[in-house]
């Protein structure tokens, strides 16, 4: 039951984009087309669900106060170390995608390496540490947060796909209307807040 709660919280209640506003730049940039949104979502889910448990291990066995020796506290290094692991993982993933799906690689373009600095990925790593999740909890939380990001991104992409045929005021076309849509979606998602 506790795990289901965690999943629900990750996807809806604390949706990384729409409740916490993390990872907004790739969210806005890659939601222009549904297929690239799906592609990037896949990449984000993979990176996040591997990076967070990995960072959990790094935290608990290396950085946590008293992890190595009683008087050593390396917790101040968590930002730089987490970013390094994320960067390495993204690099490997980039190579994998390039090798096995060149069209997807071409489509993701610069956004794939940019996942490295996607604050949503670092954010979830820091959250699990802050909340003292267990290893399994951190894996579940990270995967569901990533799915939450993906859901939001794909929803926005489909809405933007629809909106292409509508008469949006000249000055709001593009990023303007995307921000407004994000705001509206955030309001809708806030309804899930009280559930868990």
């Amino acid at each position: 039951m506790h795990y289901i709660e965690l999943i629900f919280q990750g996807i809806f209640g604390e949706n990384v984009v729409l409740a916490l506003f993390l990872g907004l730049c790739p969210f806005l940039a890659q939601s222009k087309r549904v297929d690239s949104a799906i592609g990037l979502s896949g990449a984000v889910i993979t990176v996040m669900s591997i990076a967070t448990p990995f960072n959990w291990l790094v935290w608990n066995f290396l950085l946590k106060p008293q992890a190595i020796s009683p008087e050593m506290d390396l917790s101040f290094m968590r930002f730089i170390v987490f970013i390094a692991t994320i960067a390495a993982l993204v690099h490997i993933l980039e190579k994998l995608i390039k090798r096995f799906s060149p069209p997807l690689y071409q489509q993701l373009g610069i956004y794939l390496p940019l996942i490295t600095v996607n604050c949503a990925v670092l954010g979830t790593s820091l959250f699990t540490v802050e909340r003292e999740h267990s290893f399994i909890e951190s894996a579940i939380f990270a995967t569901s947060s990533a799915i939450g990001w993906a859901v939001a991104c794909i929803i926005l992409a489909t809405v933007r796909h629809k909106i292409r045929a509508s008469n949006v005021p000249e000055n709001l076309r593009g990023a303007g209307i995307a921000f407004i849509l994000t705001g509206l979606m955030a309001m809708a998602f806030s309804a899930f807040n009280g559930l868990v």
Partner: peptide
Amino acid sequence: IFTAFIAVLTTILIFC
């Protein structure tokens, strides 16, 4: 520790 950590990551990367 940090240098060692980065070295391990780099090795994994090169291997991949």
